[in-house]
Design a protein around this nucleic acid. Structure first.
Length: 703
DNA sequence: CGGCCTCGAGTTCC
DNA sequence: CTCGAGGCCG
């Protein structure tokens, strides 16, 4: 915002000493909290308190204009829009980096470095290295004179960049003044280099807003960051939550440092944001490991990285190694395969789920993203497609971030030809042709036809799935095939299959080199396995059978609640809506869904036949509520456990009367910690939930 | 009625 | 894992 026009009242010409002191104090406090918030990501006061301090300072500065200062926290967004950027020459050229695309090339670089050092009479065994993430953002240079930020510039061609000081000042993580110790004198000049980036979450939000406003979206976070920094109007840049990682000191006058590691430490101590995961190493194995660690960690990060930068630590050694052309020999960029890619969205397909929900998904030209080939990705629902403005025929940006699951980030508007088709959810179910409905206030479009083939097949797949009846040897493919052949029409039919009819059944085929189709037939052995698995499933506890039936809103937890309160299926079927809704955790909506399910004659028939096939429709004594040593204790599993699978752990907990839930909440009794825990750990720490290691957990289980 | 918290449903790749 | 929606508490 532009500085507020001074409203000088006559007679008030000089600020009293109290105001002067208060202004200084406020600036010091605001700078400190700014640092805690943006650089350390560890705020100590609320946003509201910060705003209060900020406002107080602004008012004082308005009242006493003579106390104003361009370095004041109120002046981060101070400048007026520019007509154009001024070109500036860097105090020291900003070099580029040679690439290593795999372990072998990294090794070759390391070998060359050690050889060269030996030739120069240095001991290569004493060489230390530093690894740091290579942020996919915008390289910039910040010049501090006498401790004050005087110039910020883009990298440009390395020699000459553009002066973007006004925009960089709006970035909270960039200090306007160096954080100095008591009596510490700032160096006359220090040039700090870093990479400005837009956090991925902010990028997505920004693109959604732009799409909604009909503005073109950014193709990726780097473009968005670069576009923001090169805004002529600093107020636009201020509205983008940009951040920075600082990684180097360029030109300096008045600073004596011996190594890169020392430089990073200096930066950290003087208020700059330096990546906390930067590490020091001593041999090639450690370096290789560091590169792989970063690649693995990549999906968890809130910023894009396209590799790891390795530098020789000692400045003396750096000098000895020198620069060839533009690339210093003492540094190299280990590059990853890109985790985002652009490809063509050929068509939007629709799946019909077991509840009748129509789920659109993107069919794309296969493209490699983060090391795997992606050809499909879910598009969630119609609103999401429209919000992102994704059209058939678009070039789209796909990414694998946050998790392993690929997502379509959005279209590349610049690549539009006009031939793209705006997407409309089908009015007829793609499986059965029924008119689809979208209940008011809901997001999903549904097929209302209960005998829709897609819904039936999907519900059978649910029935045999791991969490439900867990029938090994009957997978999705086989269910599809058996249904299409008319051998099963619902889940009960599985138990009435004739093994003799199954043997020799063609389930799929592959094409050999001569283009000839080779049929794959069910062998007697696999049919035997199937029958065994079906047999075993007859022993599954009642609550799993109830879950397997696929009643709407009745998942594994609610099935367990119902099973333990109603003991058997007859009691449940006979219960009134009110009685069902009376169960703790079950409300009117779920009760209605239960009644509706059992009100359907053909569902009752399925239950009858499953019962006749020998499935369990009553709860064993131990399954009743409140039984077991861990009665009603809630567990959450995080990460991978070394000695047992998630499902095993769950069984152990449940066998003792405990529950397993997917997220940490107030009611969670324990978090069981495995390797590579996710966000649950942080949440558990926040709530003070008891955290168990794997061995502690096993002990609790009595093993 | 609003704001948590928890559960359900659907998902990708190898 | 994420999103949407149901249930419950204040």
């Amino acid at each position: 915002m532009p500085p507020i026009a001074p409203q000088r009242k006559s007679g008030l010409t000089m600020a009293d000493p109290k105001a002067t002191k208060r202004v200084q104090e406020l600036r010091r406090q605001l700078e400190h909290h700014n640092y805690l918030y943006y650089v350390l990501d560890r705020p100590e006061i609320s946003d509201a308190e910060y705003d209060r301090l900020f406002l107080e300072l602004k008012e004082l500065e308005a009242r006493y204009p003579e106390l104003g200062s361009p370095d004041s926290p109120t002046q981060r967004v101070g400048a007026e829009p520019l007509k154009q950027f001024v070109q500036v020459r860097h105090l020291q050229p900003m070099f580029s980096l040679a690439n290593a695309r795999n372990d072998e090339e990294l090794r070759a670089w390391h070998l060359r470095v050690t050889k060269l050092l030996a030739e120069k009479g240095m001991d290569p065994a004493g060489a230390a290295f530093v690894s740091e993430p290579k942020i996919d953002g915008l390289a910039i240079s910040l010049v501090y004179e006498d401790g004050r930020l005087t110039r910020g510039a883009t990298r440009g061609n390395g020699e000459i960049g553009e002066d973007v000081t006004a925009n960089l000042r709006t970035i909270g993580a960039i200090p306007i003044r160096l954080r100095l110790g008591r009596d510490e004198k700032p160096p006359a000049v220090v040039e700090v280099r870093g990479e400005v980036y837009l956090p991925l979450a902010a990028f997505q939000k920004l693109n959604q807003q732009r799409a909604a406003a009909g503005e073109p979206t950014f193709a990726n976070p780097r473009n968005a960051a670069a576009g923001s920094v090169r805004q002529l109007d600093p107020r636009v840049a201020a509205g983008r939550p940009l951040s920075i990682w600082c990684y180097q000191i360029g030109f300096t006058d008045g600073l004596e440092l011996e190594s890169h590691w020392q430089a990073l430490t200096w930066l950290r101590e003087h208020g700059f944001k330096v990546n906390p995961l930067v590490k020091q190493h001593h041999d090639l194995d450690e370096l290789t490991q560091a590169c792989h660690d970063w690649e693995e960690r990549r999906p968890e990060l809130d910023y894009d990285i396209d590799g790891v930068v390795i530098k020789v630590d000692s400045f003396t050694m750096q000098q000895a190694l020198g620069i060839v052309g533009r690339d210093p020999r003492w540094a190299i960029a280990f590059k990853f395969a890109p985790s985002t890619a652009v490809t063509r969205l050929l068509k939007i397909g629709v799946n019909v789920g077991r509840t009748g929900a129509l789920n659109p998904f993107a069919i794309m030209e296969p493209v490699e993203v983060g090391g795997v080939t992606i050809s499909q990705a879910t598009l969630h629902n119609e609103e999401d497609i429209n919000r992102k403005d994704i059209r058939e025929g678009d070039w789209v940006l796909v990414q694998r971030a946050g998790d392993v699951i690929p997502q379509v980030v959005g279209p590349i508007i610049q690549k539009r030809t006009g031939a793209e088709k705006v997407y409309r959810m089908p009015e007829k179910c793609p499986s059965c042709g029924s008119h689809t409905v979208r209940p008011e206030g809901e997001v999903v479009v549904r097929c209302p036809n209960r005998s829709c083939p897609s819904q039936i097949v999907e519900s059978i797949k649910h029935f045999v799935s791991k969490g439900a009846m867990d029938i090994d040897g009957v997978g999705e493919r086989l269910v599809d095939r058996l249904f299409r052949l008319g051998m099963i029409r619902n889940m009960a039919d599985l138990y009435y299959l004739d093994p003799e009819e199954l043997v020799g059944l063609e389930i799929s085929h592959s094409v050999n080199r001569n283009g000839r189709e080779i049929p794959h037939r069910l062998q007697a052995r696999s049919v035997g396995k199937m029958m065994d698995a079906l047999d075993k499933s007859r022993q599954r506890p009642f609550h799993r059978v109830l879950f397997a039936l696929g009643i709407r809103h009745v998942g594994s937890i609610n099935a367990r609640l119902l099973a333990s309160r109603f003991h058997d299926i007859d009691a449940l079927m006979a219960a009134s809506r009110e009685e069902v809704a009376g169960v703790e955790g079950i409300g009117p909506v779920i009760a209605e869904a239960v009644k509706e399910f059992f009100g359907e004659p053909h569902n009752r028939e399925t239950v009858r036949r499953l019962r006749a096939a020998g499935l369990r429709f009553e709860a064993a004594a131990a399954e009743l509520a409140g039984a077991g040593p861990l009665a009603d204790q809630a567990f959450v599993l995080s990460g991978t456990l070394a000695s047992l699978s998630r499902a095993d752990a769950r069984e152990m907990i449940e066998a003792r009367g405990g529950k397993v839930s997917g997220s940490v909440g107030k009611g969670t009794a324990y978090l069981v910690l495995g390797e590579n825990p996710g966000s649950k750990l942080a949440r558990a720490r926040e709530l003070g939930t008891k955290i168990l290691s794997e061995s502690e957990f096993l002990k609790l289980m009595g093993r």
